[in-house]
């Protein structure tokens, strides 16, 4: 009799162990999934909080330049005040690239459409496929800026030695709060060849494959 009791107890422990292993494994799988679920959650948070939003829409191809422009223009031009726009570029040490803004700074009324130009030259002896990554300071002014046309909307292919003038046409919504008298825009180029750069043999083909994950606008 005691033997039998011992046995039942052992069976019970084994069943319980199986249950713990089962439930724990489910938690592990769910949390692995949660790691990936953080990506859409992160985008939602960025949207709600107004951070990062427009860049991602430029990069993933859902930036609606027309709608953004209409929204920015509907408040008209505010002639009672001027704001200063500054245009910076950020060097990418990994690229042999000459990149500068033709206009360093301009003063304008909110609501005016302005166009500036950027110059880029591939100084290396290899073709480059470039994507411009935008940023703006202060961060919270981002939603008041609409880009009508931008070289950051699509990837830029540059042959060795090739140079380019690239336009940026934009408008700042006159609803821009007065606490932002100066807006600073900056661009940085990233080489889409960079992943392929690890493997010099496969080179360009791999780049094309990487490119297919990008959706061009226009």
């Amino acid at each position: 009799m005691p033997d039998k009791m011992q046995e039942t107890k052992q069976d019970k422990t084994e069943t319980n162990n199986k249950r713990v292993v089962g439930v724990s494994s489910l938690v592990v799988i769910a949390m692995f999934g949660f790691g990936f679920a953080l990506i859409p959650l992160y985008d939602v948070f960025c949207d709600v909080l107004g951070i990062n939003g427009s860049y991602q829409t430029i990069e993933d191809g859902t930036y609606d330049a027309k709608a953004e422009t209409e929204r920015a223009l509907k408040n008209g031009v505010d002639e009672s005040r001027t704001i200063t726009m500054q245009f910076l570029v950020t060097d990418n040490d990994a690229l042999d690239l000459e990149f500068k803004s033709r206009t360093k700074s301009l003063t304008m009324n909110p609501g005016q459409i302005k166009e500036v130009s950027y110059y880029v030259k591939n100084r290396s002896n290899k073709p480059m496929v470039l994507q411009a990554i935008p940023d703006i300071t202060p961060n919270m002014a981002k939603k008041y800026l609409a880009k009508i046309e931008c070289f950051c909307f699509k990837k830029q292919t540059l042959q060795p030695g090739e140079e380019k003038e690239m336009p940026l046409r934009f408008v700042v919504n006159s609803a821009l709060p007065e606490k932002f008298p100066v807006l600073t825009m900056t661009y940085r180029f990233i080489d889409l060849n960079y992943k392929a750069g690890v493997d010099t043999k496969s080179g360009y083909l791999q780049t094309v494959q990487v490119d297919s994950t990008l959706n061009d606008i226009n």
Binding site: G35, I39, N52, E59, I133, K195, V198, T213, L214
Partner: peptide, 22 residues
């Protein structure tokens, strides 16, 4: 790195700051 996704690569629409959060 090896299969062409862009979770953290800004050039492909990803975000390095996302990495820090995860």
């Amino acid at each position: 790195k090896y299969f062409g996704t862009s979770f953290f690569d800004a050039a492909g629409g990803g975000d390095p700051v996302l990495f820090q959060h995860v």
